[in-house]
Amino acid sequence: MNLSRKIADAVETLPPGGPLPCPVEAEAAGARLSVHLTAQGPVGIAFDGLDYAAAGRRDLSADELRKWGDRLAARLTYLMEPLVVLEVDALAGEAALRSQAPTPRGDLRSFYEVRLRREGSLHLQRIAFDEAARRRQAVPCRMTIEVLERLADDLVASLD
């Protein structure tokens, strides 16, 4: 069973009305995916962070990090906003992707942020900037289980 199917199974087999938030993890072929689930329903889920790590990889150079970011941005076209590679920090071995343009909703401006690390791991979260409070805060990413499956497939494929 591949990673996408495993994470979908892990989410679907959670007991209804179980304690939330809770971490849900899946591992396949040396890659590990975990989401910190905050809500679960028949249609989809909400999580406040997604981590992916491909084990046993050599460290990526800054150029390779950028290329990985570009491949991810090209694949993840079904999230709410298209992603772009914003910054690549060669010293720290990190790259940051964000939504090309945040989505405004009332006083909030929300966008995705993906941080890639040279060892082949990433963290995805959704952030909202509150105009009134003048602060950023992490907000839940909402998606159907099918989208989560596709996301898992694309994360694996983007590093191949």
Binding site: R98, A101, P102, R109, F111, I127, F129, D130, E131, R134, R135, R136
Partner: peptide, 10 residues
């Protein structure tokens, strides 16, 4: 920025 204001100010 379009992404709001960072945390450095705070």
């Amino acid at each position: 920025s379009p992404y709001g204001s960072g945390e450095f100010y705070r």
